[in-house]
């Protein structure tokens, strides 16, 4: 049982503050959906937690099982169990998915320990089958020339292989066709369980029909302005964000 605790977090890019005091605690087994208008800082939040060097944390803290991770490099945080499924995954020309994931797994092993290649491939193939990814993808370079949907599926494949404690999934549903959405959602649901906590960033209620969240948060202008259960997502779908903005104005007036 683990916890990821975000405490009054402030994040800037250059001189510009994007995340303006955000708090949220995720425990293993929970799925938290985060919704919010474009440009409110959802991706910024997820990248800052993952340790992107361009994102400066000006105050607040992020704790994994009670210990601050802010002093750790991105790769240390990753090995500690934080996984980010990118909104816009990078392409790595010339590096095959199989070799990339192998290197990532090897990086998690003690020095001198060698990955068992045949067990690794067996596992990789079973995860690919689960996500209905053609085996010929193993030899393709990571995300290189992939369609939008293929990139998203490749992110989930990596997540399935690396078995993180916490997954920050940034618009994993965007770019997926209807069938792919169901496959990816099924895959995530299989991974769901007492050892995984999820922060699910999405714009659409549709995904939440498949992956039913325990909590839904609305992010606006760098903060969480409203939280609720899955019904909040339905309400947003029906009414848009205007009513939330109005509520906010009324509260601050």
């Amino acid at each position: 049982m683990s916890t990821l605790e975000i405490n009054n977090l402030h994040v800037s890019i250059g001189d510009k503050e994007i995340v303006k005091g955000l708090s949220l605690t995720i425990r293993s087994g929970e799925v938290h959906a985060v919704m919010g208008p474009n440009g409110t800082g959802k991706s910024t939040l997820s990248k800052a937690i993952a340790g992107h060097p361009d994102y400066t944390i000006t105050s607040g803290d992020v704790l994994l099982d009670g210990v601050s991770i802010l002093a750790q490099q991105a790769d240390e945080r990753a090995r500690a169990g934080i996984f980010l499924a990118f909104q816009y995954p990078s392409e790595i020309p010339g590096v095959s998915i199989a070799n990339f994931l192998r290197a990532a797994q090897q990086a998690r092993m003690a020095e001198g320990e060698e990955l068992d290649a045949s067990a690794y491939y067996k596992r990789l193939y079973s995860k690919m089958d689960l996500l209905k990814i053609d085996r010929k993808f193993t030899s393709r370079a990571v995300n290189d020339g992939f369609s939008g949907g293929e990139k998203k599926r490749c992110e989930i494949l990596q997540m399935a292989m690396l078995e993180p404690k916490f997954a920050l999934m940034d618009e994993t549903d965007s770019g997926l066709d209807i069938d792919a959405l169901r496959i990816v959602a099924d895959g995530i649901n299989t991974m769901r369980g007492p050892n995984l906590g999820v922060l699910l960033i999405t714009h659409y209620q549709r995904l939440l029909d498949y992956i039913v969240p325990d909590h839904v948060h609305v992010m606006y202008d760098g903060r969480i302005v409203k939280s609720g259960d899955k019904s909040l997502a339905l309400e947003l779908e029906a009414k848009g964000y205007d009513w939330i903005k109005k509520e906010l104005q009324a509260a601050t007036a």
Binding site: A78, S90, G94, V95, A104
Partner: peptide
């Protein structure tokens, strides 16, 4: 080799050095 590419690889657990060498090895792979 962009900072974003290196970050992507580090996010998967590779050190900065490992990420760099993987990017370089990828470049000359063929």
């Amino acid at each position: 080799v962009s900072a974003d590419m290196i970050f992507y690889m580090q996010q998967r657990g590779l050190t900065e050095g490992q990420a760099m060498s993987l990017a370089v090895n990828g470049f000359i792979n063929d």
